[in-house]
Simulated scan of single mutants.
Amino acid sequence: MDYITIKLPFNANGDVAKELLSTAWWFKIAAHRVLALAKRLQFLPGNKVGWVSVFREVAYGVVPNRRYADGAVTLVMGIYESCRALGVDFRGVELSGWLMFQQSELEYPAKSITLKQNHEFHVTTVRFDGLIGRVVVRPTVPKNYGELLNAILTGRVEYMGRVVIRDYGVRNNQLWVRGEVHMTVPLDIYYEHMARYRRNNGKLIGGVDVNTDRINLAIINDDGELIDHRTFWFSEVTARGFPKHKAWSLIGMRIHELLDYAYHHGVKTLFLENPEVLGRLRLIWVRNGDRKHGSYNHKVTIFRSTITERIALKAPLYGIETKYVNPRGTTNSTEHDEIMKKYGLDRHRASAYLIALKGIKHQ
């Protein structure tokens, strides 16, 4: 079964903020301990059960909550597996400055980060003195997400929780934190309750070319004739220092604009470049000194692949089917140059057209 993680922002202050922050610090220390031990071992387990068996005691000695301890172990295991897939030396990685804590398994109800009827979350905490506590977090829940949360409660659907601290400080002599509650839920439940359009009677094909500052859409018919094309810009996010959270919010808006435009212009199937199989670091919390050279291209590849994945994830909400094509030849080729001249397209829109054309040829 496939899953998706939704994010619900919250603000907290006072004792609630203090307990959330302390739990995140203990969790981070636990992850560091597990990482340090894992680097020293010559052989590491091949699955989650093995990792938990070897490292749970170490993590639990720092964060005395079994679910959070397993969550720290699972996080480090994910880093190790990503490093193997990327060909990166696991012993050379370091954890960056994140603050969060999570469970490691799906359950209903999730015991440590528990969804309640009024869309608040009862969160188990580990205080700075090491004692266990429990606080209530009330995130901002959009109306459409509210329907999804209700479905999870009434259907007793298993989910997994995570709390991420984005920022913290002191205001009027009182500690505050800004963060997000993350819920990992089954993808089919998400589609069932979040769909914007239940039916799609379109017959056209779309091709999408993703870049660091725009998404290009080309629409063609079954004969390969170009019907329409459009560019959805988010060039602001390339500015140095542009906030990451704001950037992804803006990109998310453009993705929905793209899909809404495609739906209302008769697109039934959307072809995307197949994201390179990077085994990439899905939690961008790992820094590695060995990747200083060529890191820009690495980041760009991950950035583009992430946008492509998000388009594929959101497309079913519009009744649009997505398929992947091999991107080879869609950017630099004789055919690409000919299409630019024939239709008066820039190179990115021509790439989108070629992706769509490649899609119908390989169906």
Rank of each mutant, 00 (worst) to 15 (best):
L217Y: 08
K18R: 14
N11W: 10
T301R: 15
P109E: 11
L283Q: 13
N144V: 08
L148M: 08
H245N: 11
A218F: 13
N274G: 06
S22R: 01
G146S: 04
D70H: 12
V286I: 13
R178P: 00
V237S: 11
L226R: 05
S249K: 15
D209L: 04
P139H: 04
G155D: 05
S351C: 00
V325P: 02
L86E: 11
L41A: 06
N200E: 04
E81H: 10
T308Y: 08
V181Y: 08
A36P: 00
P316Y: 14
Y190A: 01
Q174E: 15
T308C: 14
F90N: 04
E105F: 01
D213V: 04
G206K: 09
L357F: 03
K116I: 15
A356L: 07
K39G: 03
L8T: 11
L258N: 12
A69F: 09
I251N: 14
L35F: 13
H119G: 02
G207T: 00
I360Y: 01
Y168S: 10
S333F: 03
L75F: 12
D213H: 07
T125E: 05
M100H: 12
I113Q: 02
E321N: 07
A69R: 11
Y68N: 03
Y318H: 07
D89M: 13
E309F: 03
T125V: 11
Y108W: 14
F234A: 01
R287P: 00
P327Y: 11
E273H: 06
Y261V: 02
Q363Y: 08
R196Q: 04
I79Q: 05
G61K: 08
V163A: 05
R199Q: 09
G359W: 05
I205R: 10
Y318D: 06
V62T: 15
E81W: 14
Q174S: 14
I339D: 07
A262F: 10
E273N: 13
Y145A: 10
